[in-house]
Design a protein around this nucleic acid. Structure first.
Length: 491
RNA sequence: GGCCCGAUGGUCAAGCGGUCAAGACACCGCCCUUUCACGGCGGAAUCACGGGUUCGAUUCCCGUUCGGGUCACCA
């Protein structure tokens, strides 16, 4: 028999933000399908009506789209297993639940929330075995009558009391548990909606999901799902449980660790490509190479289930920084210039500037997009100076020399035919030769005059080009005035 | 607490009975250099512990410890 085509699904609940862990699940699910030439399905699990968040589904679409994780079937594009929204599939779950009740593998439970709550209190920690199966042996006829009368009820799965259940996971291997540790979990809630525990199994089967990929927090409830597959007589999928993503302190990644959602990461100035690359390597490695920079497209052929590790992975923002820098450095010129302009335009306003040169100097020095405004803020300010600013030890520059250099240089620069990199470069090199100066002296004096800063993105020539002739000359004159006005002899 | 899972430098990790235990991030030096970066070179740093199995264990088995997950009419 030929291998069935691989089908995976991303099944988020629309409860708000796209957490990094969710995104990684989506990514792995997508990759496992793509690598095998299979299909990736998007399914919305909105069975918890109290946690629904307005606009959450749109946010999910948007995130997947900007990451390049495209689904083959889903609520927005349809497909052979439609509908792909669980709230639109209620009759289906009901039918299967009823089947289970009929075969004696599930039963209606009339216990009140209050009773269940007191149950939990009594079983103070020690040997809590969950629901006490109070309604398990109610006579079916009686149960039917009570339902008929309109009594509230849920449907619970009847777990085997003896024996053990084991299943095989592609990452964690064979896992076996005693059936007596399994609770008679709720399949259908009293509001008629299915629980995740039931809906995921029914849908995964009906939608032909071959690889169930999800976080390892589902590992301990998987035996119960497995039992469901068995009682239905359905083929058991390949389980692929993913190690957790944790914060620096080893605990489940949460708010206090920093940005934890895709949106927050974007907001913080990271590129979608870098984020994807980063999370791809959180809990997975290619094994046969030491390469770490993979685009989504490359991952689509390189990804392997066997490369997934079992141990939880700490999310490192430092590594993300580095990853982001890599993507910025490798970005096509035009794309990068556009991104820089987006940040710079609002800052420069009417002041002209050379965006191409600005982008060039920023390319090797930008970690996060959001850092750009701060690093270039000085470019739209009129520099203020201090004599000490012009003291450069290595270049043997001091305020006095700087004054001489600027005084000699300004007329030449004013006379410059064309204000471009090559011309300015040539002029400065000439000056170095003519005045018999060190390169660092000339370059330093100019750079300091132009910026008023000891640290600048780009050197003298780049700054001059970015700022343009008028602003550059104006700053240099200001600097010269300052140097002349302050007391030289006191030095 | 019961059950389940995990454990290689600070972090991500390769390894899958015999290695001087890869690589990357971060860190520390040095070099390059018109500043800062970038880049290059080098450095420090790891098999949690105790028993087995074996000629030989990071690797296989069992404990211990530590960490995590899970015990809902949430997913």
């Amino acid at each position: 028999m030929a291998e069935a085509i691989v089908r995976t699904r991303f099944a988020p609940s629309p409860t708000g933000i796209m957490h990094i862990g969710n995104l990684r699940s989506a990514l792995y699910e997508y990759l496992i399908a793509r690598v095998a030439g299979g299909h990736f399905i998007l399914r919305i699990e909105d069975t918890d009506r109290e946690r629904l968040v307005e606009g959450a589904v749109e946010a999910i679409y948007k995130t997947l789209r900007t990451c390049g994780i495209h689904h083959d079937e889903g609520p927005d594009i349809g497909g052979p297993s439609a509908p792909y929204v669980q709230s639109e599939r209620l009759p289906i779950y009901r039918r299967y639940a009823n089947d289970l009740v009929k075969q004696g593998d599930a039963y209606p439970c009339f216990c009140s929330i209050e009773r269940l709550a007191s149950l939990h209190e009594e079983q103070s920690g020690d040997d809590f075995i969950g629901y006490d199966r109070h309604c398990r042996e109610i006579d079916p006829a009686e149960a039917a009558a009570r339902i008929e009368k309109g009594e509230q009820y849920v449907i619970r799965q009847k777990m085997p009391l003896l024996g053990e259940t084991s299943f095989s996971d592609a990452v964690y291997g064979t896992i076996t548990v005693d059936n007596k540790t399994l609770e008679d979990q709720v399949l259908i809630k009293s509001d008629g909606y299915p629980t995740y525990n039931f809906a995921n199994v029914v849908d995964d089967h009906l939608m032909g999901i071959t690889h169930v990929v999800r976080g390892s927090e589902y590992l301990s409830s998987t035996p119960k799902y497995n039992l469901l597959y068995e009682t239905f007589g359905w083929e058991i999928p390949v389980y692929v449980h993913l190690p957790l993503i944790v914060g620096e302190d080893g605990r489940k990644l949460s708010k206090r660790h920093g940005a934890t959602s895709f949106d927050e990461l974007i907001e913080a100035g990271y590129l979608p490509e870098a984020i994807i690359n980063m999370i791809a390597f959180l809990g997975w490695s290619p094994g046969n190479t030491t390469r770490e920079n993979f685009t989504l497209e490359e991952l689509e052929s390189a990804f392997t289930i066997s490369g997934i590790s079992k141990a939880p992975a700490v999310f490192s923002y430092k590594k993300l920084d580095w990853m982001n820098e890599q993507y910025i450095k490798n970005m096509p010129e035009d794309t990068w210039i556009a991104m820089v302009k987006e940040k710079a335009d609002t800052l420069f306003k009417d002041q002209p500037y050379d965006a191409a040169m600005l982008a060039r100097v920023l390319k090797e020095r930008t970690t996060r997009l959001s850092d750009i405004p701060d690093t270039i803020a000085f470019m739209v300010e009129t520099p203020t100076y201090a004599r000490d600013l012009f003291k450069l030890k290595r270049a043997k520059l001091n305020a006095e020399k700087a004054a001489d250099i600027l005084a000699a240089l300004i007329p030449d620069m004013e006379a410059l035919q064309s204000w471009d990199e090559a011309s300015i470069h040539d002029l400065l090199e000439q000056t170095i030769a003519t005045q018999n100066r060190k390169k660092g002296e000339i370059m330093g004096a100019v750079r300091l005059a132009l910026s008023g800063r000891t640290v600048t993105p780009g050197g003298a020539i780049e700054l001059a080009v970015i700022l343009g002739r008028d602003v550059s000359l104006s700053h240099m004159k200001n600097a010269l005035d300052f140097l002349n006005e302050t007391d030289v002899t006191s030095e």
